[in-house]
Computed example of a mutant assay.
Amino acid sequence: MRPQLAISLLTLGAVLAAPGCATTSPEPSRLAGCETGAVRLTQDFSTAPGYACQREGEAAFELSVLPEDPEINPSPWYAFDLHADEATDAEVALDYADYRHRYQPRIELEDGHWAALPADVVTVSEDGHQAMLALDIPAGVTRIGAQEVIPIEARADWRAAFADRNGMSRAVIGDSREGRPIEALTRQASTSNAPLIIILGGQHPPEVTGVLGLRAFLDTMFGPHADATVLDAYQWLIIPDLNPDGVEHGHWRHNTGGLDLNRDWGPFTQPETAAAFAAIEQQIMNGHAPFLLLDFHSTRRDVLYTPPDGAALTPFAFSEDWISLIESEWTGDDPAFDRGPSHNVGMPTSKTWFADTYAAPGVTVEYGDNTDRDRIIALSQTAARALTRYLDSQTANSRP
């Protein structure tokens, strides 16, 4: 017996605009039976993986949610559209094979915002290998995703708008394996030898809460209430979307070279990480010594992965000092970030490579998959204000 339908998406205002065209479309043979009829399931937009789909009834479908490569971090991403000629009940089964359900499904609302589907809409098998979505959909197009769907074009639009309103320059620093541009944003320091701060994002495609956190952090750090004196004292290099191919194709983890980009810092075998490294080295050649790297991600909790305590880095004890300032700024009922001071030591991640290469701190900023979106914004704003206070203290100590 399939579960009873538990929610009306009409009450969520989930009548969506028609989806845009993707760069590539799933092979028709893989979706046989799903893209025709009065109720249809399609995956022909940016970030949709194009999984094998099987029709189980007039308005019932099964998706085989499988990764792009074996031996991968279990981040089973999915995104699809349901088309209905008229309001109806619909069911979508997610079959993860040997993997387990991770993400609470979300739906795009009529106003473009996203909301989590209530828990009683989703029935997960005891072993976690299957999940059933029981829906009551309106006429039109309803978009469902493991997290908010942020297509390639929307990410480019955000970068352009952010750079324009904050007086930053934009430059293509390289291309992905499939030829998509890797773009960096730069804010020039007021002095030629100012220290360099690097901010990264988008290495792992499904980590959307990391994208939301990065944007809120940057909006606070550089927005209308920012301390220009502090910002001017540093050279800023920001690369928000390092894995555009993986995002476009709905990958769980990898680029189209079959590699986790956050395991390629040092080897730099992939064009995406090689472009980031070249951009950093160019800043160093221009006289800006590496000072700090922040890399934004998602995981199962809000946590900062930092260098080990006592590491011989300059500035010394940055993580401890920054976290202390975050805690002093934080007004939430629960603690802000957890801390992991010995995470992935010795692995070719961005933060470890940065510390080992430049003897400067690198920190991975992680937001929980299911962290409330208002909390993500609050955490990011608090972290940005705390960093501003920290940098202000550093510049004050260096003044004559």
Score class of each variant (00 low, 15 high):
L5A: 12
S8T: 06
L10S: 12
L12S: 12
G13V: 04
V15M: 06
L31M: 12
A38C: 10
T42Y: 02
Y51F: 13
A52V: 11
Q54H: 04
R55Y: 00
A60E: 06
A60G: 11
S64G: 10
I72T: 03
I72N: 07
P76A: 01
L94C: 05
A97K: 08
R102C: 01
W114H: 02
L117M: 15
P118F: 06
A119Q: 00
E126I: 13
G128V: 09
M132E: 15
L133M: 10
L135S: 08
G140E: 01
G145K: 00
A146N: 09
I150N: 07
F162E: 05
G167I: 14
S169T: 14
A171K: 15
A184F: 01
T186A: 10
T191K: 13
P195A: 09
G201T: 06
L212M: 12
R215F: 00
L218K: 12
F222V: 11
A226H: 05
D227P: 05
D227S: 06
A228G: 03
L231H: 02
I239F: 03
D245T: 04
E248Q: 14
H249V: 00
G266A: 01
A276D: 05
M285F: 04
H288W: 07
T299M: 00
R301T: 12
T306C: 04
G310L: 11
A311I: 04
F316S: 14
L325M: 12
G332I: 04
S342M: 11
V345K: 08
T349H: 00
T349L: 02
A360S: 05
A360T: 02
I377F: 03
L379F: 11
A386G: 10
R399N: 13
